[in-house]
């Protein structure tokens, strides 16, 4: 959708993913999404439950099969999904359940090395690599190497997940709500760690979250999804200062404490998201949008450029200067 300056590490082209929804019907979780992530960039992906953000993340790793479209890694279409998984690693929301309860931490971290060979982890033997990555995520190998997942706190388990992913030196991390299950005081630890690891290992990241404050803190660019489609993409400061899509605005206005200073959500957004089994015609947000008219029901809006790297898919984008005046409060 957007074209960043440095060559993209990953490109998603017109991706469609659907699931069976009973009685020979299918529900489209992702309906024609395109995006590109530059090497070394962190793209934040936000949206509410059912918007398709997790499905999109999994489709990039081919954990779910795409019906249409393709995923390019450094310009070529990796036909071999295992080759893709060697270079792109995933981190999940619930760190404890994403660790095999029957194995010890050191073995879990060495899993990628067992699959891909010790050479995948760079110099040194297996135990050296395991020690190195455990140190990198802030865990003492002596103390934690022999523990089992149930002996870890949530934050420690998420560190183990990161060590496991980093052991085979991937180029990219796809993180699906990596801090949502953690306590507030532990969230900050993991977010700081992610920033450090990104610099240390030269990582590219796709950071999926429903938490706008967290996404704002960690991303370079942010993409907003609603019901399987992209609403808006922009560099992080541009998005939070000059959001143009009514849905992005509504999302920002719903954050408790109103840190992003937009009018109360009740004036912007009402009702519940429609069922993805039977999405509205035209613009999918129109059933909850205060600006919707007949055109929104008839024609799905295309993404239009409204600024440097800022795309918005809306027939009636909000004036960027509107109602940001109460920001200071």
């Amino acid at each position: 959708m957007s074209r960043p300056e440095s060559p993209p590490l990953i490109e998603v082209e017109d991706l469609v993913v659907s699931y069976p929804a009973g009685r020979a019907r299918r529900v489209q979780a992702v309906s024609g999404v395109s995006l590109a992530i530059a090497s070394g960039e962190t793209l934040g992906l936000v949206g509410e439950s059912g918007c398709g953000k997790s499905t999109l993340a999994r489709a990039i790793l081919r954990l779910v099969r795409a019906e249409h479209g393709r995923v390019l890694l450094a310009g070529d279409d990796p036909l071999d999904e295992r080759r893709l998984r060697r270079r792109v690693q995933m981190i999940f929301q619930d760190p404890v359940s994403s660790l095999n309860p029957a194995r010890r931490v050191a073995d879990i971290v060495a899993e990628g090395l067992e699959i891909w060979g010790t050479d995948a982890g760079g110099s040194g033997g297996r135990s050296e690599i395991v020690e190195r990555v455990l140190h990198a995520v802030g865990l003492d190998p002596e103390t934690f190497g022999a523990r089992r997942p149930h002996e870890l706190s949530g934050g420690q388990a998420q560190r183990v997940c990161l060590a496991r992913a980093l052991a085979i030196r991937p180029e990219m991390l796809v993180l699906d709500e990596p801090v949502s299950a953690l306590d507030v005081s532990v969230q900050a630890q993991i977010l700081n760690l992610l920033e450090r690891l990104k610099a240390e290992f030269g990582l590219t990241m796709l950071f999926v979250s429903h938490d706008l404050s967290v996404v704002r803190a960690i991303s370079d660019r942010v993409l907003v999804m609603y019901l399987g489609r992209v609403c808006e993409v922009a560099p992080v400061d541009e998005l939070f200062r000059r959001a143009r899509h009514p849905y992005t605005r509504a999302l920002m206005a719903s954050v408790p404490g109103k840190p992003f200073g937009v009018p109360p959500a009740s004036r912007l957004i009402e009702g519940e998201p429609p069922s993805p089994i039977d999405p509205p015609s035209g613009c999918r947000f129109r059933t909850r949008c205060p600006r919707a008219d007949q055109r929104c029901a008839d024609v799905a809006p295309d993404a239009i450029a409204v600024g440097e790297g800022h795309l918005v898919a809306c027939h009636h984008p909000v004036d960027p200067e509107e109602s940001h005046d109460d920001r200071a409060r």
Binding site: R85, F92, S97, S98, P101, R103, R164
Partner: peptide, 19 residues
């Protein structure tokens, strides 16, 4: 999740079954 995580690591079916 840990089985999905193993798939995402590139583990083969046999490995997932056994390990």
């Amino acid at each position: 999740d840990f089985v999905v995580a193993a798939r995402a690591m590139g583990a083969t079916r046999r490995r997932i079954l056994w390990r």
